[in-house]
Design a protein around this nucleic acid. Sequence first.
DNA 1: TCCACAGTGCGATGAGTCGT
DNA 2: ACGACTCATCGCACTGTGGA
Length: 325
Amino acid sequence: MVDAFNANFSLDGLGLELGRSPGYGGLDMLIQDQWTVEDDKLFENTLAQFGDLDGEDSWTQFGANVPGKSMVGLKRRFNLLQEDIKNIESGRVPLPHYDARNDTAHQQMMQPAHHAVPIAQVAQSNPTGNAKASSKGSSGHSPKKGGGSGANASKNGANGAKAKSAPAKTTDQERRKGIPWTEEEHRLFLLGLAKFGKGDWRSISRNFVISRTPTQVASHAQKYFIRLNSMNKKDKRRSSIHDITSVKGSGKGGNAKGAANNDGGGSSHSGSDASANIGGTSAALPVAARGGMGHAGGGYYASGPVPVGFMQTPGMYGVNAHGGM
DNA sequence: TCCACAGTGCGATGAGTCGT
DNA sequence: ACGACTCATCGCACTGTGGA
């Protein structure tokens, strides 16, 4: 039921507000400033266009582009966004030093700082975070180094012809295989993108996606923007991690659910699921520091500042806003 | 239902370009 | 000259689909 609630993306904005009740207005304010996913999206896109908002004029114009929202609400939303970035920068939201190359590390990432359950235990209870999702059109293939998992053995067999007569694995080939990006990494990537803008892969790598080199970040970005560009053109696409355009998307809980419920739309971000995924809950950002992820799919029901949805990427980053890669 | 194939996604890498 | 970024491409993994 909790998942069902979290899956109700239209409530997401409200959920966020509820989660940070103290200091962010009372119930009346909530009623006045309920944020739907669409509101969030509009806010983010508009913000992306406006860039810096300094001066009342800017805010007035900004408000005109986000109808139905009070100036107070808009500013609060904006402040939350800034606060979140500041927290990340200042280290108050520690980015976990996890190694994305194994799921244990991934679980580490997902582990709230105060959580009592040992990581190993968590890892055991859900040993295949991504692998599970990958069973149905998920973004993450299970990280199968060394020639495919058992589950896919038959599949690989079926693909034998396509396998290009795979020779014995050399270390080079092993190296070439690549480590799939986790949703967490991708969300951090989006955060970094929002903060440093397109092109500053070094800073993004250093400050956000610390588990990836700048080259890897750049490569990921390349695919991400290609994906974004192609999203408008083709309606039927396989789901991809790049369908996540907001850090506020679905995390593990939603992932599993997506895999279970959404044929071909695992991880709840298939192409046509754009809205759902953007409004999705159970985000997995620096949850470790946020005490989030207390329950599957509810990452942001934590106390303290919560990142509001981040922006759509193309064209939002002041400089280099020419979407092309 | 199973299998083979085509299509797609994505990480890695190399070459080219640009800024310092 | 060097480092960083962009772009094109490669190769593997995986999904979708049509035919047997």
